[in-house]
């Protein structure tokens, strides 16, 4: 299955605004992050496990156990700082 990726703030600057990822059916958000890290630079540094990041699945905040489906929109971004 294929999902659409979106990045914001510092991640957007490092990785671009969007991308795509092929994954096995039933993959979770954490597995998507690991596959991106495995691509190497610049993904490896931006999405590294020690970095505090948040994720949204289909425009709702989610955690890394959320299960992905074909066509989903998955976003990664730093902690939010609005207000």
């Amino acid at each position: 299955m294929k999902i659409k990726l979106r990045y914001f703030a510092s991640l957007r600057e490092a990785l671009g605004a969007q991308g795509e990822l092929e994954l096995p059916e039933g993959s979770r958000v954490g597995e998507a992050r690991d596959r991106l890290i495995a691509r190497g630079a610049p993904f490896e540094a931006s999405l590294a496990r020690h970095k505090a990041l948040r994720a949204a699945l289909n425009q709702a905040l989610c955690d890394e156990s959320a299960v992905l489906a074909d066509g989903d929109e998955l976003a990664f971004f730093p902690p939010v700082t609005g207000g």
């Binding site: 949204a56 609005g82 207000g83």
Partner: peptide, 10 residues
């Protein structure tokens, strides 16, 4: 809003 809304300041 401060902790859950997707805004980022630079």
């Amino acid at each position: 809003l401060k902790t859950q809304a997707p805004f980022w300041k630079k």
